[in-house]
Structures are given as structure tokens and as C-alpha cells.
Write a protein that binds this DNA or RNA. Structure first.
Length: 295
DNA sequence: TACCCGTGGGT
DNA sequence: TACCCAAGGGT
């Protein structure tokens, strides 16, 4: 029965899969690693153009490692969570220095790289190297919550039971295809907001649908205000540094946010995080970048 | 563990 | 319009 679920989802993937550049033969482990980090909490549509630009500009880890970290932040653009750009740059340097320039192939080695957690390590080992791992992202968690457990949404963080279930579903043959197929189902059909059950290949065996799609009754799932937060302030400050082509006077940063206390706190945070660099003359820049560096 | 970390599009 | 949330990770 688990086999029936897997087979139906993998067959569906065969006809419904999107043609994404990092899935093509020849994307390479580096391209796949870059895509996975860019896709952390960020929709595919926004990642696509940035990934293309990165791959053209930095086709190998060594190419990125040869640049200052600030250039990675600059070309991250508006993807959000810019520390991921620093993480990728740090990955490139570790890969270049310690792995002979080749993206490591084992889960354990990948897991040691900065910004690579359980999901990303499993994803890269699977998609780049064909290995067999349980790949448990938000899409998979939602599909399994519904199809197997009969609940509309998974818990906030993965539970041991979820991992056990995900591992029990890893097929003996072609585990990466199962992983990408069930992720794709969650992304295109079994969506968080308005699931398209009419298009679902496992609608007839989905516990949640068979139970009449009962409404979620667990604890409140989120609640994030953004306006007025330090995050928004940091974003404003970093946008100025990104778009400038040289050191930025403090006044230009001050103009982005009215509350001076919060502004200073945010700027200090950016510096602490390595996303901004103060210069002796009182100006600021992206870390390691030089004046007039080409865009 | 709960919170922090950006951004923009869909509903 | 306001809110939800998107291939998470670090602390």
C-alpha cells in the first residue's frame, strides 16, 4: 500500500514534473547545491533568474571562492535571508580548500558545510549523487501529514515519528526520484493553501481527503509581523549597500530608517553577521568588496 | 525550544 | 487588504 502511494506519485511526476534547470543532466553537484540553498524558504520563480546568473558568473566553487564574500551578497539580489549568500561563499571556500574543489558526496561531509542542515545535505546527496536518503522538506511533510496521517498540516518542526515514516518510505530502487516526485506533488498539487485534490494522483488513498478534509485543529501555526521589525530595517540597510558600487556614507544608511536606536541595532547586527563592513573613514560596504567593483 | 533571519506573490 | 507562506538553518 505504501508501494501504491509511491508508484502513483512517481508516475505522476513522470508527466507533471517542471523542467527546472538544476534538474537537468549537467547541472552538476555545484549547481544543485546552489539551487538548494537558494530555495531555502524562497519560491522557485524567484530563484530561477538568480541561479542562472550565479551559474554563469561562478560555474565552479573555486570561481566563487576567489571573490570577496560581499560579491556573493551583492549578486544575491532580493532573494531574502542574505546570510545564505555568505553561507554559499563559505561553502565554496571550504570545498576549494578541503575537498579539492569538488562538492563532497556524503551526507556527513555535506552536513558539515555552513548553512547545510539535514534537509539540504540529504537533498544534495540524493539529487547530485544518486544516494538513498529520506528527504524531508516542508512539501514532503505536508503530503505525508495529509495522505498518511489524515491531518491538514504537519507540526511546526519535524518529529521523530515523521522521520521514521519518511525513512520507511524510501524505496530500495531510485530513491532520488521518489524524493523529487513527492516534493513536486507538495509544491504543485498538495499545496498549503488550496490543495488541488482533483489533480492528485493519490486522492483515492489520501487519509485526509477520505476523512472529508477536516480543518486543522492544532496550535496556531504562525504569526509573523514584518513591518517595523529589525528584519525589515536590516533589509533596507543592506539594499543600500548592495546597490551602491562603493563605500556608502553613514548618512545614506541613516536615511533608510527613522528610528535611530533600531537602525543602529540593525546595522550592528549586519556587521556582526558579516554582511556589512565598517571602514576607518566612517563609511560602510559589503564585506571585502573594493571601490568600483564591476556589477 | 522558540525565536531570529528577507522578500514578494497568491488568496 | 491583510495575511499566509515559500526545496531551512543556526542558536
Amino acid at each position: 500500500m505504501a508501494g501504491g502511494l509511491r508508484e502513483a506519485i512517481v508516475d505522476w511526476y513522470g508527466v507533471a514534473a517542471r523542467d527546472l534547470p538544476w534538474r537537468r543532466v549537467g547541472a552538476g553537484a555545484w549547481g544543485i547545491l546552489v539551487s538548494e540553498i537558494m530555495l531555502q524558504q524562497t519560491p522557485v520563480a524567484r530563484v530561477l533568474p538568480v541561479w542562472e546568473e550565479w551559474m554563469e558568473r561562478w560555474p565552479t566553487p573555486a570561481a566563487l571562492a576567489g571573490e570577496p564574500p560581499g560579491e556573493a551578497v551583492r549578486h544575491w539580489g532580493r532573494l531574502g535571508y542574505p546570510r545564505r549568500a555568505l553561507n554559499l561563499h563559505a561553502c565554496a571556500r571550504v570545498i576549494t580548500d578541503d575537498h579539492g574543489g569538488r562538492v563532497p558526496s556524503t551526507y556527513a561531509e555535506l552536513r558539515e558545510l555552513p548553512g547545510i542542515g539535514d534537509y539540504t545535505a540529504a537533498a544534495v546527496a540524493s539529487f547530485a549523487y544518486g544516494q538513498s536518503h529520506a528527504v524531508l522538506d516542508t512539501n514532503v511533510r505536508r503530503v505525508l501529514a495529509r495522505a498518511v496521517r489524515g491531518e491538514e498540516f504537519p507540526s511546526k518542526t519535524p518529529t521523530a515519528a515523521e522521520r521514521t515514516l519518511a525513512e520507511s518510505l524510501v524505496p530500495a530502487l531510485d530513491a532520488p526520484r521518489w524524493a523529487v516526485a513527492v516534493m513536486e506533488l507538495g509544491a504543485l498539487v498538495c499545496t498549503a493553501r488550496a490543495p488541488r485534490c482533483a489533480l492528485c494522483p493519490v486522492a483515492d488513498q489520501c487519509a485526509w481527503r477520505l476523512a472529508g478534509r477536516p480543518a486543522y485543529d492544532g496550535p496556531a501555526r504562525r504569526g509573523q509581523t514584518y513591518a517595523g521589525t529589525d528584519r525589515q530595517c536590516r533589509g533596507r540597510l543592506l539594499a543600500v549597500l548592495r546597490e551602491a558600487h562603493g563605500p556608502v556614507p553613514k548618512a545614506a544608511l541613516d536615511a533608510t530608517w527613522s528610528d535611530p536606536l533600531q537602525r543602529e541595532r540593525a546595522l550592528d547586527g549586519l556587521i556582526t553577521d558579516g554582511l556589512a563592513e565598517p571602514l576607518p573613514d566612517g563609511t560602510y560596504r559589503l564585506p571585502g568588496t573594493t571601490t568600483g567593483s564591476p556589477s
